[in-house]
Every structure is written in C-alpha cells, then in structure tokens.
Design a protein around this nucleic acid. Structure first.
Lengths: 196, 196, 196, 196
DNA sequence: GATGAATGAGTTTTCATTCAT
DNA sequence: TATGAATGAAAACTCATTCAT
C-alpha cells in the first residue's frame, strides 16, 4: 500500500478514536492497533501524537472551511442565507461526524466529567427554551423548534462571551446589546407570530 | 484554617489550573503546589481528581445557571432580552473567568493543539464575517460589531449542529431552515440597514 | 474510660480488622474509625502499627499457648492426648477466631491472590484425600473424616517442610521417614480397618 | 532475548522477591530492578502486580501439585507412603524453595512482625515437643526427631482447625477425636517404644 | 487526655516515544 | 520499509505518622 493512501487510512481511524475519546485519552497504542499498523509507523508518518492530531484537524478543517464558505459566502448576497446553503453545511457535519466532533464537539475525555458539564449546559438551554416559549401562545409551540433555537441562542452566547474575553477593549454594553438583539431576532424569526 | 474555608480556597485555585490546562493536563501535584497544600489534603477533601473537578463545576455552574436564569427568564417578557439583563450575565462571565472557561471555554489541554483548533474556528468566523460585511455598505461597518456577530453566528451553528447530532429524528431541512433564519435575523438586527 | 480498658477494646477491634484484611491491608484509619477513637490515640497507646499488631498477637498468643499447654502438656501422660483435651483447644479457636486467624490463618491481604493460593492448597488436599480413601473399602468412608485427615496430613507436611528448611543439617531421608510414618499412622488411626 | 524466555526469567526473580518480602511488601520497582528490566515490561508481560503474582504461583503450584500427586497418589497403595515417595516431594521443596515459601511459607511481609508470629508458633511447638518427650525414656530421645514430629503435629492441628472453621457443620467432638488420634499415632509411629 | 488537620514518602500504573533488527 | 521489544518520565492515589490546639 502506497504511503499516501495509508496516511489517509490512518487519519480516518485516528479521527474515530479522537472523536470518541478526546485528545488526551486517545492512546497511540489504540490508534495503531485500530489502524492495523505498528506504532513506529505512526511516528514515521506523523512525527508525534500532536502531529497526528494536527494532521487530522488540518484535513478535516480544510474541508469544513471550504464547505462553510461555499455554504455561506458564495454567490448572490440575497440568497446567501438560504436554507439550501445551510443544508449543505449540515450535510457535511452528518457525513464527517468524527471531524466535526473533534473540532467542535464536547471533548469526551472522562465520562462522568463530560456528562456533568453537558448536564449543566442542558439546564441552561432549558431555561432559555422556557424563555422562548414564554413569548409564544401555547398552540404556537411546534415540536422541537423552540428547543433547537434555545441551543442556538446558548451557543451564540457562549461563542460571543469567549470572543469578548479575548477582546477586552470592547465594552460590555456593546456586546450585551448585540447579543440581546441576536436573541430577540432569533426568537422572532423562528417563531414568527411571537410577541417577544 | 478551618476545613470549609480551605476547601473554597482550593476550589479557587483548582479552577485556575483547570481553566488554564484543561481537565487532563491539570495535575494534582500542580494544584496542590499552587494551593499551598499537600496532595493528600486534596484527596481527603475531594476524594479524587474527578471529585475535585466536579466540585468545582458544581460550584461554578450553580451560580452561572442562577445568573443566567435571572438574566433571561425572569420578569416581564417584553423586557426580557433587554441589554441590561444580558449585561448582567456578561458581568458574571467577566468576574468568573475561570469558571466560565472550564464550563464553556475551549479545553486547552495541549497548547499547540488548542491553538490550531482555535485558529480553525477563527478562519470560519472570518468567512462568516466577510459574509456579514458583504451585505453592508462599506461605511456601515462600525468597528468590531461584524466580527462579534460572526462569532455569535458560528457559535449558534456549532451548538445547533451538536444538538442535531443528538436528535437525528429531526430533519435536516428543519434545522437548516431555523439556522438560516437565525443567521439572517441576526445580521439584520445588528446591522440594521443591511439588505441581507 | 480508663486507659487499660480502652486498650483492650482497641485490641479487640484491631484483631477483627487484622483477621479480615491481613496486616498490610489493614489501615490505621480503619482501625481508629472502627474502634471509635482518633488515630493519635492509637499511636499514644501502641507507638506504631507494628506495635499495635505485636500487642495483639502477644495477647492472643499468650492465651493460645496457655490453652494448648493445658490441653496437651498437663497431667498424666496416659490421658494427655485424650479428645477432651484437644476439644478444649478447639474451643479456644472457636471463641477466638480473630486471634487464631491472625496467628495461623491464611493472610487475606488481596482477595484474588489469597483465593488462588487457597485453591492450590485445596487441590493438594484433594489429592491426599483420594489417597486416604484409596486404602479403604468404599463403605468405610464415613462423611468428612477422610477430608479432615487429608487436611491434617497436608498441614503436617507443610509444617514439617518449613521446619526442615530451617534445619538443613537434618537429612532428607530422616524427614521423609518421619513424615511417611506420620501419614501412614494417621490414616490407620482414623480409618481403623484400612489396609493402608 | 525472546519474550517467552524473559518471562521465565522475570518469574524466577519475582518468586525470589515474593518469597523474601511477601506479596504486599514486594514492590514492582524492586522486582524490575532485580530482574534487570524496566517496570513497563512487567506490566506489558503480566498486566499487573496481581497478574505477576498469580502467574508465579500458577507456575510453581502446577509443578508442586504434580510432584505431590506423583509422590502420594500413584501406584500400589501398599507402597504409597513409602519414604522414597515422600523424599521426592521434599526434593521439590528443596529445589523450589521460593515457590514453596510463597505458597506455604510464612508470609514475611514485615520482618519483626513475621518474627514474632514465628516465635509464637515456636513456643507452641516446644510445648508439644515436651509432651512428646514426656512419653519417652530419656535415652530414647534421638536428636531432632521429637522436634520434627512436634512441628508436624502443630501443623496438622493448624490445618485441621482452619479446615474446621470453614466446616462448622462438623462437630467439635469429631474433629477433636480425629486430631487426638493423629497426634497419638504420630508419636507412637515415630517414637516406637513410647508408652504414650 | 484527645483530636482535627496535615504531610513525606512511597505505591501501582500508564503512555508517548525510540531502538535494534 | 516495518516492527517487536523496551523505557523514561510522570500520573493518580494511599498510608503511617505527627503537630498545634
């Protein structure tokens, strides 16, 4: 088997293991065994565990960025946010679960620990969901939309807050204002008749 | 020093270390040294590394959830998304950086690894930012708003995609539709004159 | 509570723990907790873990030796080995299980390890038992006598071999001769009509 | 050096250390150093300390059981207890001191502790020895025979008592009866002219 | 006399990494 | 090229033991 091909195979397997166990808990032993190669091969091809990981997210990230750019940034601005575009991006997530999980999923690492963190996030999402639903008439709540939007809102806030922590020169008021608007607009957009 | 007080002190320090290094890379030795106590104390008070971590996120999460609920869920729906409310939440993030980072920050774990992942996210955010700006006249772009909103949008998508992976019964079209609307509404809301 | 009395109480508890877990696996923490005293008390009274253990086997051993001497060594040689005497000794074992186990029982220490060793001994005892039974007519085998004698024979051999290891000046032939006679006599004694 | 061979070498060394220090006090560090390998090898080959120990007693026990069965159980019942047979078994003990000590020796564990226990047993054996000698004319006592038989008797009692503790359904009278007979027969067998 | 609080020193175990073949 | 065999370094965790009060 030529080297290039074997490298791809190893990356596939490594992705599975990283996605399942997280960077730290994944062991080179396990990856080598799962890929059916010897450990020294892993080192010959990728230098180190870190090198292997970086190679993997490089490959995954490359494709993800391209797909996202195709989904979001290309073509006529008027149609840019069209669901079909977004759908393409979601297809990618679906087809490349491992890559997505490694880049954006919650690092499993230690089972009970990950669970507790995830539970905390869940509680927050629930609170937001109640808020979303509070602005609606009871009969407007259709299935999982409210739950989904709640997660989107939480994720937006999380990301925004993290960004802000790296940009302390931006005032809290500004950030708060933007986020407030995003939240309000999201609720209104998805739940159109909402009075929120 | 009475036990209860020292427990709080240890939790503070542990939070710093966990926030900086991530769960796995944080070592009990380091935490003990930083807290100025011996390792056996850590075990006497928190049973295990996992126990220490869980204690920490319990304490942090408790307060975060409360703060978020106060920010979002209380009072008159009409004023619920008011920036002042959101601002309160951001205050919390600011005051409890460590707690926030441990719960919602990017697990550092391994420096270059974290950096690469973070860079990848950055590139995606940039693509989205360009998209946001594409819908605006050049003179409308005011400072960091577009960047901030781009991060919010990315975070929303990330969170939504993760939620969807756990809810495969929801159709891709639905999720795509919701996300598309969230994105569009967010852009419009923050960049009001945008034609997007 | 006066010191002397408390010492006795602690020794009782310590014996239980030592008998259950073995010297190494027994922890001072556990003994202190079980005895309802603080660890520093244990050290004030017995100096060290070793001191505690030695105190315990001293107390137990003292009584055991006395009982054995009374059972075996006293009085008219003709009646010395009478079952009533032996019975007294067995009473002691029954009443002082912990003491006996600590002095002569198989050290538990590590469960699976102890089990494996014990199994090995069991297999040996079985082989001996078959031998004992081989010398009997089938209808002579009455209940557990053969099994019991087999264990006695194994124990005698074990003890004899250990003794011999410390007395290399004694010839193997002599030891073998004595042991052979003990075995034969034991079988005959307990299974009287045996042709062995 | 091929793996299989090195495994045997490690087992040999481990046996020495276990025999000298007992299971608990033996440390993997020490075994590795003594065997001239690194600790990870120990784990690669035997999984754990427990695994190493079990491997060792498996290997030792296997051979011991076979030897014992050959010594005791084979051939014509009439010659079964012949000293030559027993002698073979003693040869094994002599040649496999470590294996024997690990399986049947007094677990050293902690030097002074083991010593004290051993001393206690010694005192008991002495008492029994006096008893044995009490039944003899002074000029009949030939060298170490009485001492050896005393140890055999003590070992038989020890083993019998342990067996009885696991079989409480057997009456004390029965056990006492059997033991009494074993004792009497042993004395008579080895010290033939004794009136005991 | 009694103890809550504290620790030094050691244990087993794991893992990324490399060399000899 | 490929690997079986080997390891240095560090991790989590435990325990007998001792102060300060």
């Amino acid at each position: 088997m030529p080297r290039a091909q074997r490298e791809q195979l190893i990356l596939d397997i490594a992705g599975q293991v990283f996605a399942r166990d997280g960077y730290h808990s994944a062991s080179m032993d396990e990856i080598a065994r799962a890929a059916g190669v010897s450990k020294p091969m892993l080192y010959a091809y990728f230098e180190s565990k870190e090198g292997l990981y970086l190679s993997y997210i490089e490959r995954s990230g490359q494709e993800l960025v391209e797909r996202l750019q195709r989904a979001f940034a290309a073509g006529d601005p008027a149609t840019v946010h069209a669901p079909e575009r977004v759908s393409e991006f979601l297809s990618f997530v679906e087809e490349h679960r491992d890559g997505w999980r490694v880049l954006f999923g919650e690092a499993s690492a230690n089972r009970p620990v990950a669970e507790q963190v995830s539970q905390m996030r869940g509680r927050i999402a629930q609170a937001v969901q109640q808020l979303v639903e509070a602005g609606l008439d009871e009969d407007q709540i259709v299935g999982p939309a409210a739950e989904a939007v709640a997660h989107a809102i939480v994720g937006a806030g999380e990301s925004l807050a993290n960004w802000w922590l790296e940009h302390p020169e931006v005032s809290r008021e500004d950030v708060a204002g933007w986020y407030a608007q995003v939240v309000r607009a999201s609720v209104v957009a998805v739940m159109p008749r909402s009075a929120a």
